[in-house]
């Protein structure tokens, strides 16, 4: 259960709209299901009062929307950013993708978001509605008469369980408590497990995972690091363009190319895995890169500071030699 309530956000949004600080509000609107929330712009107080939603399914990272939504709009957009979103936001500022003066950032504290697939694993399919109650999530399915209760702990998304930071690295104003970074989050645990595998085992693992890819591009479309004017996968001249996988090799390469493209820029927000309809743990590819960068060049968190130079695009004479990478043990 979020300690931040819908009312805290709507009253803030309406007052900022009314006093002219912002001309639009980026928030969540109900989608097809109550747990399926869609980021959306609100321009009026009425719209906010009627349709603004905030609950444990507000996992979507807003930063990427700001890249396009801030273009051609008069005045500022109010964006409610969770701690993890602020890292992505900063990274986009670093890459000059968002005009900072066009955004009014309200940092909101976060108690971890729910993962619908984890709930589904407990209650079974056919969820018709979910309500967030103090003692847990009340889940109604079409097969049951009574709603089932799922605890917030059981429902919490994996990326939130090993949350790297509850601290906002950027905001104009804060709602709720400011948290701390969490260096002991053990977010590389699964990566270490993969590293411990033999190359054959690892290859089999990834082939199994990636074979499910239907090349829907959701991971790319949601990724805040993927904001190219023209993605290489949409560029006929890139040699990598393909809308659907023609061979099993291709979907593997798609994800590996994507991981390379966001290496050093990925803030580990975990949106790729959240939106994947095939439940491929794509964030592990990115975390492997983050772990390697930390090991080779010292701790680096993309988005922590605006303008920071990622080790991969920064050269120092102390950088390790390629041979040292080659000689290391494991993968």
């Amino acid at each position: 259960m979020q300690r931040i309530t819908r009312e805290m956000l709507t009253s803030k949004a309406i007052s900022l709209l009314n006093d002219g600080t912002v001309s639009a509000v980026l928030g969540w609107r109900e989608g097809e299901f109550s747990y399926d929330l869609t980021p959306s712009l609100f321009y009026t107080a009425e719209d906010i009062e009627q349709n603004f939603v905030f609950n444990d399914f507000c996992g979507a990272n807003f930063s990427k929307y700001l890249v396009t939504k801030t273009l051609g709009i008069e005045g500022k957009i109010l964006a409610f950013l969770k701690p993890c979103d602020t890292y992505s936001f900063n990274q986009l500022l670093t890459e000059h993708r968002i005009d900072r003066s066009k955004v009014y950032v309200v940092g909101i504290s976060c108690d971890g978001m729910a993962d619908i697939s984890k709930i589904r694993a407990i209650t079974g399919d056919g969820i018709s509605s979910i309500s967030c109650e103090p003692d847990g999530l009340k889940v109604q399915t079409i097969y049951d008469d009574e709603p089932k209760t799922v605890s917030y702990e059981d429902a919490m998304a994996e990326r939130c369980i090993c949350c790297k930071s509850k601290k906002h690295v950027c905001y104009d104003e804060l709602i709720g408590e400011e948290g701390e970074e969490n260096p002991d989050c053990n977010r590389f645990g699964k990566v270490a497990e993969l590293e411990a595998m033999t190359p054959d085992e690892r290859f089999a693992f990834w082939r199994g995972e990636l074979s499910r890819c239907i090349r829907c591009n959701a991971c790319r479309d949601v990724c805040p690091a993927c904001t190219c004017e023209k993605c290489v996968f949409n560029n006929p001249n890139s040699g990598a363009e393909n809308k659907a996988p023609a061979t099993s090799f291709e979907e593997q390469m798609f994800h590996i190319i994507r991981a390379f493209h966001v290496a050093g820029r990925c803030t580990d927000c975990g949106e790729c895995s959240r939106v994947c309809p095939q439940h491929i743990p794509l964030h592990l590819l990115n975390r492997k890169f983050i772990k390697d960068i930390n090991t080779f060049y010292g701790e680096y968190q993309a988005g922590k500071e605006v303008g920071s130079r990622a080790p991969l695009v920064d050269y120092t004479t102390g950088d390790l030699e390629p041979g040292q990478v080659f000689e290391r043990e494991g993968m």
Binding site: E95, H96, T227, E229, V313
Partner: peptide, 21 residues
Amino acid sequence: ELMCNGCSACEKVCPYGAITY
């Protein structure tokens, strides 16, 4: 220029300072 998104990655890696925005 039609594809450039202005992210400055190239500017940062250029050892000769040949790239401006």
